[in-house]
Amino acid sequence: MNSEFAVILVDSTSHAMRIEKILTMHGLTCKLVPVPRHLSSDCGVCVRVLKQDIEEIKTLIDTHHVIVRSIEVL
């Protein structure tokens, strides 16, 4: 599967909200979507982002001390 997207998997909706806020503040495209079934059986949301932004996002996540479970390309 080749797509332009990646998803950030997080522990809870609150964490997803926090990441959404930070990314939006920095002008990065993101959207909260249900976690794709092949990645986790969780019923919550994850943050869908553009693959091309991953490096910048990793830096932001580090500087804001946000805990994420993983970043998965789709």
Binding site: S14, L32, V33, P34
Partner: peptide, 17 residues
Amino acid sequence: PGRSGHRLSVKAGRIIY
């Protein structure tokens, strides 16, 4: 909020956040 992942659930979650 935080249960379903559809647009209204996300909206509700955002208000709580």
